[in-house]
Each structure stands twice: as structure tokens, then as C-alpha cells.
Design a protein around this nucleic acid. Structure first.
Lengths: 242, 242
DNA sequence: ACCTGAACACCGTTCAAGT
DNA sequence: ACCTGAACACCGTTCAAGT
């Protein structure tokens, strides 16, 4: 086992037996497993080849590109989202169930979350999800440009928020970065930062710009529930107004 | 001028005169300019050195790390955010002004936005922003764990949403990817995707998973305004309830 | 204190060649 | 159709050496 650049230990997948001849699906499946194990930076076409016990060129034969692998990986993760039945619940409840399902899927693959939020790859995937969400909003009487705007507002909030929650602590930075950052936060001057210091117990390591653990290690459950209620209350208010 | 991997043409900065001896601030400033010009993938320590007309090792002497450069770049962009006076407006209006100011700063540096949303770098920066936002929420009677949750809910929504809006179309993919994707979207079957096809005029290239232009080329202004209103209405509802 | 020049251990990707 | 082996043009980072 070669030394890995990332020192955050992740669950090691068992040495899955690789079927030969290789096919595209197992390449993508192992790519996801590798990303789960070592993170996005250390995910390398060469490392993927090694995990598959072949040569890099072989990987390229099955899948054109690093970008295409990542795109395919996102699709796999999206397929893991268990969508509630669109007709089984009122629109607002359904949106809540979807948001929670999306979040738990991403928490299973925290290293993929950044990809979805940040890259265009998200587009290539899953018109199934898009169709379902749009149909629920349509049923909730969001129509035409209001439908588009409501979709963007809600989906962007969910995807973006979870992306922030799971944003990676960078492997490049010092290993003892988190200890440094903790003391830095705790020693903020009460003259310049009165609100932060007055509420330190509720803020330190619990709030976006003042935490030193990632969302995978320390999920922001309460904040997510508030955010979700906020999004849905907001949509309700919008609906009343038109 | 060497061939650039990215073919999306961006505004070229004028050949800024570099003061010698070099100092950390100009390294960071040029790093931001380089990222604006060529994007995050093509932003390279070697390319930065070339832009500064020195050797890579010289860059490393002034700034420890690629990660530290990116962290410092975020800080510069954050400093460009023009914060409204916290006492000049009621809390809900102030939050709206902040969100718009954040978004315009990110639209000036679309390639940086993904960094902020996705990486921990965001943390290192700007307790100034954090303090101000918290003070406004505190004044709005969000206290203790409610203060933390409201902060996370709102800030995560704003930062994450803008990150999604500006998510890059990947340079790795084919140059004619967008044309391909357009026909792919337009030819979706009306049997399987009835809502999408029925609302195609309002959705195509205007909605998160069905667009082929990035938010830098085609900003989602109306959707952002709806989202913003949604967030603030949501916070108002939360306040009424407690 | 700051810069040069070269090196090390990697990358993604391609290509000619094998079976 | 699928794999091997080697190569090309890059990376980030470090180090000994110069001024």
C-alpha cells in the first residue's frame, strides 16, 4: 500500500474482486469507491488503474476522460437518492422529504458533494430528478417563469447548502491546522468581535466560518432542519402572494 | 503566449508591471488575476511564476503553498464585498443587501466562487463578515442555538446558491459539449418527461440541470431574487414562531 | 532576505503494439 | 474488442547554491 497524500482516514473498501474483462460500469463503481476512500484530490486516473489492477491506458479505453468518470460517478450517487412518491404527500412535505433524501445520499459520499455543487457535471445527470421536482412544483401552482425560478431557488439552496456543509478541509494545509484554527477562533478579541465572543459556546466549531471540523465528521443537523423549514416557508409565502 | 488548455476566452488583464523585489501581496493579487483569466484548473504555480516573470521556487518563497495562495485569494475577494451599514436598515433588509453584495463580488470573480462554497478556505477568512452578520441576526432576536442555526441556514444558502449558479462548465469536456447538451435537452421524450417538455420555453438553458451556459455568461437574476425573498420570508416565519 | 537552476516524484493522456 | 508498455508534456514542491 503506497502512502496516501490525504491523512484523513476513511473507510477502506474491501478488496473487491474485479471481473475481467473489465467493463465501464465496474470502472465507474470503483472510481466512486476510490473517491470515497481517498478524496477528490488524490483521485487519480493512475490510482484508479492501480485499484483495478490494470494500466492507465486500459481505463482510458473504457471511459474517455477524467471528466467523464466524475460525471458518471455523480450519476451513480444520484441514483442512490430514494425519491418519495410524488403523489403520496402534499407538495411542501414532499420537498422536505426530497431535501433530506438528497442530503443523506451526499453524506454517504461527502467527497462527491463538492463536485455536484460546483461543477457542471450536475447537468448531465438525472433528468428523472428534475422532472419529478418540477412536477411537484407544478402541482403546487408554480407555473411558467415562476416554475423555473422556484425550481432554481429551491434546488440551488439544497444542493448548495449541503455542498457548504460537506466542504472539505483541505489536505494541503498543515495537519495541525485544525488545532491552530481552534485557538485562533477562541482568542478572537471581544472588542472587535463582541457578538462572536459573547456567543462562543454556540458558535465555536458549529458555524460555517468558525468551525474546524468538516460536515462529514460533524453534521449540522439542526441548522439543516432550520434551513429546510426556511426554504419551504419561503415558498409558501411566495405562493400566497401570487 | 503558450496555448491555454481552457478555450473559454476570458478578459485578459493588461500586462501589469511587477515590482521587484516581489512581495506576498502582489503574488496574491496576480494569483487572483490569473484565476480570473484562465480558471481554477489552469491556475498553476508554474503559470503564476511565469506571470510574475520568476521561477516557481521564488513563488514558494513568498507563499508557502498552493493551498495558501487560494486561501489568500479568497480573502482578497471577500474584502471586495461592500458591507452595508448594520444600523442603517432593519435586519431583513440588511440581509438582503448583504446577499446581493456577496453575489456581485462573486460574479466579478466567478472562478473563485466554487472555491468558497466548496473548500474549507472560507473559514480562514473574514471574521469581520461573520461578526457583522451575527450582530444583525442577534439584533433580530435570534439567540443562542437559534443564532447559530439561523446563521448557518442563511449563509449556507447564499454562499451555496451562488456557488451553484457560477459552477463551471468543465473545460475537460468536449468543446462542442454545449451544443450536444442542448439537443439532448430539447429532445427529451414527452412521455417520460411531461413537465419538462410542457414548460420547455421557460426551462431550457434557464434551470439548474437543464442549462448549457454557466452563471457567469447567463446570470440567473430572477431566480436569485426569488431565492433571496424565500430565505428572508423563511427567517421571518421562524421569528414569529418562537 | 530574496532569487536561480535543477531535480524528484508525480500527473493526464496518447500511441504503437500486442492478443 | 481489449490490454500492454512506453512515452510526452506537464504538474507541485524541494533543495543546494548563488547574490
Amino acid at each position: 500500500v503506497p502512502a496516501k497524500r490525504s491523512d484523513r482516514s476513511r473507510k477502506q473498501s474491501p478488496p473487491t474482486t474485479i471481473s475481467s474483462p473489465l467493463d465501464r460500469d465496474t470502472v465507474v463503481r470503483e472510481a466512486l469507491a476510490l473517491i470515497d476512500d481517498v478524496g477528490l484530490e488524490a483521485f487519480t486516473m493512475r490510482a484508479l488503474a492501480q485499484r483495478l489492477a490494470t494500466y492507465p491506458a486500459t481505463v482510458y479505453w473504457h471511459v474517455g476522460n477524467r471528466g467523464e468518470v466524475l460525471s458518471a460517478v455523480i450519476e451513480v450517487v444520484f441514483d442512490e437518492i430514494v425519491l418519495p412518491d410524488p403523489d403520496a404527500a402534499p407538495w411542501d412535505e414532499w420537498l422536505g422529504q426530497f431535501a433530506r433524501a438528497y442530503r443523506t445520499a451526499m453524506h454517504r459520499h461527502p467527497n462527491v458533494s463538492a463536485l455536484v455543487a460546483t461543477r457542471a457535471y450536475a447537468r448531465v445527470t438525472a433528468p428523472r430528478l428534475t422532472e419529478t421536482i418540477l412536477s411537484v412544483l407544478d402541482r403546487a401552482a408554480f407555473h411558467d417563469e415562476d416554475l423555473a425560478a422556484a425550481f432554481n431557488a429551491f434546488v440551488g439552496s439544497v444542493v448548495g447548502w449541503v455542498g457548504c456543509e460537506l466542504g472539505t478541509i483541505d489536505d494541503d494545509l498543515d495537519a495541525d491546522w485544525s488545532a491552530n484554527y481552534e485557538t485562533q477562533v477562541r482568542e478572537l478579541s471581544s472588542d472587535v468581535f463582541p457578538t462572536i465572543t459573547a456567543n462562543m459556546t454556540h458558535l465555536a466549531d458549529q458555524v460555517f466560518s468558525l468551525r474546524w471540523h468538516g460536515g462529514d465528521e460533524k453534521p449540522l443537523d439542526a441548522s439543516f432542519e432550520l434551513a429546510l423549514q426556511m426554504w419551504i416557508d419561503g415558498l409558501r409565502a411566495r405562493r400566497r402572494r401570487r
